[in-house]
Design a protein around this nucleic acid. Structure first.
Lengths: 216, 216
DNA sequence: GACTTACGCTACTCAGGAGTATCGTAAGTA
DNA sequence: TACTTACGATACTCCTGAGTAGCGTAAGTC
């Protein structure tokens, strides 16, 4: 193989935009399906065990078609990761008046589907991370960071609201990681779906407990 | 392949004990080296990327020798996991008088080497978990559970000592997962070694903060 | 309708890794 | 010393999965 395209999307199989073309155009409407299925497999098996044969089978698209779009498996997964989109923008999340309600709103947000699908994708991506530094970087900046950032913002919002003492600003960075960390750990170790009760317990017994030292 | 040995160690290549034997005995002194190297590779690359060729190369033991001892790759990894031994027994951990000191003692304990080696092994095992339900079960009961258990015990000890209010007993199970969860998450997302400062920050800003609602 | 291009299908090549087989030799035991 | 068994080395087989190639056909464009 030879991919001489440092630091950018591969140009292989990504035509359909430059110049006017004649003949059958690329069926870009398939892309969504393919990327979604890739994420499903990623969530179910982890990067190493994702095979393009299976993606092909699952989507009804020929393997050759997949390779017309994305030069390598890594490229496909990369595209899938990028396609997940950012978590809900905090500015768009209505201020529900209390930190607790705000946090629960994020938990219940349909970003990436259910919380468990979200976690499964994270887990599948974590294994991907070992295979490619490039992939790791994208996952970090596109998925993990923004997700933690949501919590960070909510915590700051609560501070601004005066709900929690300004003394805690310094601990916000660590606290923002608590929910992602705990839920991921739960999934990895128990290998059962993580129930909503667990999220609530983490919020009440850890986050809020740590932030309300004057009692509730 | 055919391994018809449900629910037990494979008998393949595990002689050396039954009956009296003549001739050269198994060199069991190699086992430790092999298992340790397996853990190293596991920590570095994750289960999928561990190859027995590499274990062989690394240890100077022939691949055939490895297969004389362990029937399959999974079996070898399984043995490696079992060989890590339990985390420090709480009963043996000196009561340092304060929860904070007790927790730090666990962080600094040389179990499995440095904290970062410990985390790397956990991470490599997490990817293993997806490949084999059996492996997953062993990791859970031999490694993860005992590790969380240590923290659970320390928290209870603090309660018994009257250091923290008995009101918190119900939240101990969740709290016990905080340190493993946070440090694993950190390693997975940052992919840099986790510094001691981070552990301290987790202890102070999360665990102790959640447990000392009357302020310090 | 003529032409162009993407698609699905099938059949490849190629590399790596699990597991096996064989053999000469080293290291023990009686 | 004679015998037994494990070891290291090497060369396999087999399978899976990434990536390629060529073809007939469908779906568009001019």
């Amino acid at each position: 193989m030879l991919v001489n395209n440092p630091g950018g999307m591969s140009s292989v199989g990504r035509p359909g935009s430059r110049g006017q073309r004649t003949g059958r155009p690329y069926d870009h409407s398939s892309d969504g399906l393919i990327l979604a299925s890739t994420l499903d497999l990623l969530a179910g098996r982890g990067y190493e065990k994702v095979t393009l044969d299976e993606v092909s089978l699952l989507t009804g698209r020929a393997k050759s078609t997949l390779y017309r779009r994305w030069a390598t498996k890594e490229e496909l997964v990369l595209a899938a990761v990028r396609s997940v989109g950012r978590p809900p923008e905090v500015d768009l999340l209505p201020d529900l008046g209390s930190l607790r309600e705000d946090l629960l709103a994020v938990i219940d947000s349909p970003w990436l589907g259910s919380p468990n699908r979200r976690l499964a994708i994270f887990a599948g991506l974590a294994s991907a991370t070992r295979s490619s530094e490039r992939l790791a970087a994208v996952v970090r900046t596109e998925v993990t960071e923004p997700y933690v950032e949501v919590y960070r913002r909510l915590l700051h919002r609560a501070t601004d609201r005066g709900e929690i003492s300004a003394n805690f600003v310094t601990s916000i960075p660590v606290l923002a990681e608590v929910i992602p960390a705990m839920s991921t750990h739960r999934l990895n170790t128990s290998h059962e779906p993580v129930h909503r009760d667990f999220f609530v317990s983490v919020i009440d017994n850890i986050l809020l407990a740590a932030l309300h030292p004057t009692g509730d």
